[in-house]
Amino acid sequence: MLKIGITGGIGVGKSIVCRLFAILGIPVYDADTRAKWVMHNDQALKEELTEAFGPEAYTEAGELNRTYLAKTAFHNPQKLELLNSLVHPHVGNDFTNWVEANQSAPYVLKEAALMFESESWRQMDEIIVVSAPLDVRIKRILQRDPHRTQEDVEAIIAKQLDEDEKMVRAQHIIYNDDKQLLIPQVLKLHEQFLSKV
């Protein structure tokens, strides 16, 4: 089965592109959502996170303490690397099981903001990068997340792999720059992928 990765920095519009593929009947694995699920439900990972970050990593009710983990890891590169190194292998296993469950589809998509950073691009046959100009991205994020400041957004973008680097490493680029229509770009790729299966 053809496995297509879809990535891009915050605010480029990966989710809307994935929704278009989903309308075409293509299963989409949302790595961020599944990572949260795995962190809540994978007992081995829960033990690893508790050992690495202390008992505060989970509440007394056994819920993931996202605020604590974000505060601990986001401002400390070593802790962030540790968090990712623990979570990503479990998400990789979850994705493998999900692919098995979707064998009837012509191809599948995996949406992940950190496709290259997490090395999960290695599981993919081809990569799509969704691209948008920086000013458009910042405007979108501030509209979507009014609690964030422009400085917050710029800090997040600065931590992500440079967009030009992602575009060089991808086989396909979808431009979501508010100038080019998304649907024709998605349909063209959909036809290309179908022709390969």
Rank of each mutant, 00 (worst) to 15 (best):
L2M: 09
I4K: 00
I6G: 01
T7M: 01
T7H: 04
G8F: 02
K14G: 06
I16Y: 05
C18P: 07
L20E: 15
L20P: 09
L20Y: 15
L20H: 13
A22M: 04
I23K: 13
L24M: 09
Y29A: 08
T33G: 12
R34M: 12
A35L: 04
K36V: 06
N41S: 13
Q43G: 06
K46P: 06
K46F: 03
E47Y: 09
E48D: 15
L49A: 13
T50F: 05
E51Y: 06
E51G: 08
A52R: 08
G54S: 11
G54D: 08
P55C: 05
P55K: 14
P55N: 13
L64F: 14
L64M: 14
N65Q: 11
R66W: 05
L69T: 14
L69W: 12
L69M: 15
K71A: 13
T72E: 13
H75Q: 14
H75F: 12
H75M: 09
K79W: 14
K79G: 15
K79S: 15
L80M: 15
L83H: 04
V87E: 08
H88F: 07
F95V: 04
F95Y: 13
N97D: 14
N102G: 11
N102L: 06
P106C: 09
Y107A: 02
Y107C: 03
Y107N: 03
V108R: 09
L109V: 07
L109S: 02
E111A: 05
A113M: 08
A113P: 10
L114R: 03
L114H: 03
M115C: 08
M115T: 02
S118R: 01
S118H: 01
S118E: 00
S120N: 07
R122E: 01
M124A: 07
E126M: 00
V129N: 00
D135T: 07
R137A: 09
R137C: 13
K139R: 10
R140L: 04
L142R: 11
Q143F: 04
Q143S: 10
R144Y: 09
D145T: 05
P146V: 10
P146K: 08
H147Y: 03
H147E: 07
E151R: 09
D152N: 14
V153C: 08
I156V: 13
I157W: 05
I157T: 11
A158Q: 07
A158W: 04
D164K: 12
A170V: 00
H172W: 10
H172Y: 14
I173E: 01
I173G: 01
I174A: 00
Y175N: 07
D177V: 02
K179Y: 14
L182N: 09
L182M: 12
P184G: 14
V186M: 00
K188L: 07
H190A: 03
S195W: 00
S195Q: 02
S195T: 00
V197W: 06
